[in-house]
């Protein structure tokens, strides 16, 4: 069972529910929180890595709560028209999703490694890293 990386976005009311607990307890999933931005009385987001046979059921449970569930690699895309392969992003990307290929010095992007921290969207001088919601 390979882990599934998902992005959750929730409204003000659903942040109070113990969703991670439910995923673990009711659906027997292994949950790894990769990134979370959750504040009381505010919209929030969470990036999870979930592993388990019943992950689809667990995700349906989240959708029924009105939480938007998306595959993580849909989150950040590189606009290849804009990217000039300068490499500025490779020094800041915390997971190595953006990396220098040596010796060609071309910049690779592996969406599976991306945790949607958004640092590259600020650092890229060409504004080539785009957030797709």
């Amino acid at each position: 069972m390979s882990p599934k990386r998902i992005v959750l976005r929730f409204g003000i009311d659903s942040t109070v529910k113990p969703i991670v607990y439910r995923l673990v307890k009711d659906y027997d999933l292994v949950v790894n929180i990769m990134r979370a931005d959750v504040n009381p009385k505010k919209e929030g987001m969470m990036v999870l890595e979930v592993t388990g046979d019943r992950s689809e059921e667990g995700l349906d449970y989240l959708r029924n709560l009105g939480i938007s569930v998306q595959d993580l690699n849909q989150g950040i895309v590189r606009n290849d028209e804009k990217c000039v392969m300068c490499g500025a992003c490779t020094g800041i990307c915390p997971t190595g999703a953006l990396y220098m290929q040596r010796p060609s010095m071309e910049v690779g992007f592996d969406g599976d490694q991306c945790v949607v921290c958004l640092l590259c969207t600020k650092v890229c001088p060409m504004k080539a890293m785009e957030v797709h919601l």
Binding site: V84, M85, C86, G87, A88, G91, I92, R102, S104, P125
Partner: peptide, 23 residues
């Protein structure tokens, strides 16, 4: 610099280019 790592005052520091080698 192009190896991705340099030593500064005995510490390893990550390097990243700003201009495009491929261009």
């Amino acid at each position: 610099l192009k190896s991705g790592k340099i030593k500064v005052n005995g510490k390893d520091v990550i390097t990243a280019p700003l201009s495009s080698m491929s261009r």
